[in-house]
Amino acid sequence: MTEAAGATRRTPGTPCWVSLMVHSLGSTEDFYTDLFGWEYAPGPAQLGPYVRALLDGHEVAGMGEMPPDRQLPVAWTTYLATDDADATAEAIRACGGTVAVGPLDAGAAGRVAICSDPAGAIFGIWQAEGHMGTRTSGGTGTPVWNELITQDTLTVGKFYETVFGHDCETADAPDLDHLTLHLEGRPVASVHGVGRALPRERGAHWMTFFEVADPDAAVRRVVELGGRVIDAPYDGPLGRLALVADPEGAVFTLVRQNPPAS
C-alpha cells in the first residue's frame, strides 16, 4: 500500500511519514520495540528529543517527546509529501484549512508543517531533502495505509483534491460514505465518513494502519504492555484489523492485509 522501498521522490500528496509526540519517550520506545521490533536512531536536533524508528535499518516512523509544560493529545500524525511546503501551506489556508506550525526547517530532513483540514483533522506536510520518509513497503511494524476518519466526505474530499491533486473514487455502496484517494492512478489513502459515530473525544482524525502477522496475538500483547483494545480483531476490506491504543492513548490500527487479488 505504501510507495516502494528505495523511492527517490514521493509523489506530492502521498502519505510519506507518521510521527508521534508523547510525554514519556523512553517508555513509549519500549512499548513499540516489544510490539513491532523497532530499533531507534536520533532524529533531527531541531525537533528536540526525537528518534527515528527503524526496521532492518530502514526508517518507518518518528517519535518525539513533548516539553513538560505541554499537555497535548497524544496521537499519530500522518504526513503528506510536497515539493514545496510553503506553497502547499498557502493552498491549505486558501482552501479553508489551518497551518498551526511552520513551515519550518528540520535540517537534512527537509521542511515540514503541521496543519489541519476544514473538519479539524490534523496532518503534516513534508518537503523532503536527504531524508525520504518511510522506506519499507510491508512487514510487521510498517505503516501500510492511512485513512481519514471524519463526519462526512463531501467537504474534505474536495479539500484534499484541490490542495494535493488527489482523484477521489467513491465507494460503490449507497450506504457507505467512503472515498479512495488516488495519485497517478494508484490508491494512496482513504477517507471514511462516519457521521454521528465520529468519536467526540477525538473529532476528525487521520488513522495509521501498521502491518502485523497476527492481529489477534498483537492485540493480546498490546494489553500485556499496558495498552488497550478499542475494537477487537475483525475481518474487513483491507484484511484482518483491530483498533488499539498505546499506554499514552495514541490510537492506531493493526492489520494483516489480504493477499493481492490474482
Rank of each mutant, 00 (worst) to 15 (best):
A4R: 13
A5S: 14
G6V: 01
R9Q: 15
P12D: 06
P15T: 11
P15E: 12
M21R: 13
V22E: 02
V22I: 13
S24Y: 01
L25R: 06
T33I: 01
F36S: 09
F36M: 13
F36N: 08
Y40D: 09
P44N: 07
L47P: 03
G48T: 10
L54D: 11
L54S: 04
V60H: 03
V60S: 01
A61G: 01
G62W: 01
M63G: 01
M63V: 09
E65Y: 03
E65W: 00
M66L: 15
D69M: 11
D69L: 06
D69F: 07
R70T: 11
Q71Y: 10
P73Y: 12
V74R: 01
A75T: 11
A75Y: 04
T77C: 01
L80N: 04
D83E: 01
D86Q: 13
D86R: 06
A87W: 05
E90Y: 04
I92M: 01
I92K: 02
A94K: 15
C95M: 14
C95G: 07
G96L: 02
G97P: 05
T98K: 10
T98S: 10
V99R: 04
A100I: 06
A100G: 14
A100N: 09
V101I: 14
G102S: 14
G102V: 05
P103Y: 09
L104S: 11
G107D: 13
I114T: 14
S116H: 06
P118W: 09
A119K: 04
F123A: 01
A128R: 04
T136C: 08
T136I: 15
G138I: 07
G139N: 04
G139S: 03
G139M: 05
G141D: 05
E147R: 10
T150H: 07
Q151G: 11
T155K: 07
G157E: 04
K158L: 10
K158G: 06
F159T: 10
Y160Q: 05
Y160W: 07
T162A: 10
T162F: 04
T162Y: 03
T162D: 14
F164S: 00
F164C: 00
C168K: 08
P174E: 12
D177Q: 06
H178L: 14
L179P: 00
H182V: 03
E184G: 02
E184T: 01
G185P: 08
R186Q: 07
R186D: 02
S190G: 15
V194P: 05
R196E: 15
A197M: 15
P199F: 02
E201A: 14
R202K: 13
F210W: 13
E211N: 05
V212L: 12
P215W: 11
V219L: 08
V219W: 11
V223C: 08
E224L: 03
E224Q: 09
R228S: 15
D231C: 02
D231Q: 10
A232I: 02
G236L: 13
G236C: 12
P237D: 05
P237V: 13
G239I: 08
R240H: 10
A242R: 05
V244N: 04
V244E: 03
D246A: 07
P247A: 10
E248T: 08
E248R: 02
G249H: 09
G249A: 10
G249Y: 09
V251A: 09
F252M: 14
F252E: 02
F252H: 06
V255I: 15
R256C: 13
Q257W: 03
A261T: 12
S262T: 14
